Computed example of a mutant assay.
Amino acid sequence: MLFEGKSYFVPYDEEDKGDKCFYSVETTQETIVRFNKINETQEDKIEYNEQDETYTIIGKVIFISDDKEIAIVNIADCDFTFDKDEIDVGSLRLMDRVEVTFMGLTLWDEGIY
């Protein structure tokens, strides 16, 4: 899925990268460490834990494929896609709140416009 929204760009060099442009990126994760359904009182978050180099997200399930192969979890403007080999998609319902901890968050550049 695609994440679109405002961001702060830190350039590698002095070249102007287009101040106030929109950057579109796709999210992927390497290894799921923990997955839990949670109560509805916990707020959405994306948090990095420097000690064990993991990311924890809390969000709601906004999509489940008909074959229960894929689920999409939304946090603010960011969507994370998980398949049945990563989390127990079969146990989820739309709008469930989940917490997922994983290693290796990658944001793939999809475009600048």
Rank of each mutant, 00 (worst) to 15 (best):
S65N: 11
A71N: 00
K68S: 12
T56L: 05
M103F: 14
I87S: 13
E99I: 05
E15P: 02
T106A: 14
E40V: 07
K20H: 09
D52E: 08
S24F: 06
L94W: 03
V73A: 01
K60V: 02
V100H: 10
I46C: 10
Y113D: 15
E47N: 10
D88M: 07
F63E: 04
G111H: 10
D109E: 14
W108F: 15
E30F: 04
C78L: 13
V73H: 01
E40Q: 09
D83F: 13
D13V: 00
D67I: 02
G90D: 15
K37Y: 01
Y113S: 13
W108Y: 15
C21L: 09
Q29M: 08
I57F: 01
E69K: 11
E26T: 07
V61P: 00
T27L: 10
F22N: 05
T81E: 12
D109V: 14
E99C: 12
E26K: 09
G59P: 02
E50L: 07
V89Y: 14
D44L: 05
E110T: 14
E14Q: 08
D96L: 11
F22L: 08
D88T: 10
G18Q: 05
S24H: 02
T101G: 01
D19L: 10
F63M: 03
F80H: 00
I32Q: 00
E14H: 08
F9E: 12
N49T: 11
M1T: 08
I70T: 05
T27A: 08
G18S: 04
I64K: 06
M95S: 14
S65T: 11
Y12L: 10
V98Q: 02
Q42G: 00
E40I: 01
